[in-house]
Amino acid sequence: MSDIHPDVQAALDAARDLRHRIAELRERINDIRARRPSPSGAVVPEIDAMGRLTDLYLAPGTVDRFGNEELAAEIMAAIRDSTADAGRQYQQLMDSDPWQVAEPATGGQG
């Protein structure tokens, strides 16, 4: 007979639940995207939660409108702002008790 002890079953259930919660948290982290425009609004980067540049939008005519240094400054300003925003989003997620990912609020305190 291969009956599992209740304590072992409880540990296995807790481990499975933890794996699911971690997967859900990873999904939420992977969904974080920040898109903050440059001061002129002509450049919009997309930054993920890990601070990686995932996309870069340049409005039509942007390259012609700016010199090299100005364009670089526009791009860098937008990337800095977007990176800070993605960091804030990540920090908010982590500060919001991320282990309550899919749990409904439970009964109150008396």
Rank of each mutant, 00 (worst) to 15 (best):
P98D: 15
D48N: 13
L93T: 07
A105L: 10
R80H: 07
P98Q: 14
G51S: 07
T83F: 03
T106Y: 07
N30F: 08
L18T: 15
P45C: 04
D3Y: 11
Q109E: 12
D85F: 01
R88L: 11
D95K: 10
T62K: 00
A34R: 02
I29V: 13
G61F: 02
A72Y: 09
R26I: 05
T54L: 05
V63C: 02
P60L: 04
G61K: 03
R19C: 12
R19S: 11
Q9C: 06
R19N: 13
L71W: 06
S38M: 04
E103A: 14
D7A: 11
L12F: 14
M50W: 13
R36Y: 01
A23V: 05
R35Q: 01
P6Q: 11
Q92G: 13
T54G: 07
I75P: 05
V63Y: 04
M1P: 02
Y90N: 07
G107H: 11
L71Y: 06
A72D: 06
A72C: 12
Q9P: 04
V8C: 07
R52I: 04
D31S: 12
D81Y: 00
R35K: 13
Y57M: 06
E74H: 02
R36Q: 05
D64S: 10
A102Y: 13
L25H: 09
D31V: 01
G87F: 04
Q92F: 13
L56E: 02
G41H: 07
A59R: 00
A72S: 14
R21S: 15
E103T: 14
E69R: 08
R21F: 09
Q100F: 08
P98K: 11
G110L: 12
R19P: 03
S96P: 06
L18I: 15
M76W: 11
Y90P: 01
P104F: 11
G67A: 13
Q100W: 05
G51R: 00
A73S: 15
R33V: 07
A77G: 08
Y57K: 02
A105R: 05
D64T: 03
D13S: 12
E46R: 12
A102H: 14
A72I: 11
A15D: 14
A42Q: 01
R19Y: 13
S38N: 04
A10N: 10
P104I: 10
I4L: 04
A78Q: 00
F66S: 03
P98S: 14
D81A: 09
D31P: 04
S38H: 05
Y90F: 15
E74V: 04
Y57C: 03
H5I: 01
F66T: 00
R26S: 09
A84P: 04
A34V: 03
S96K: 11
E69G: 03
Y57D: 06
D64C: 03
W99G: 15
V63T: 01
H20E: 09
S38I: 03
E46Y: 09
I75L: 07
Q89V: 04
H5K: 02
H20A: 08
D95A: 14
R19T: 13
I32Y: 10
R52T: 05
Y90H: 10
R33K: 12
V43P: 00
N30M: 11
A102N: 15
R19M: 15
A10M: 12
D81N: 01
A105S: 10
D31I: 03
A102L: 14
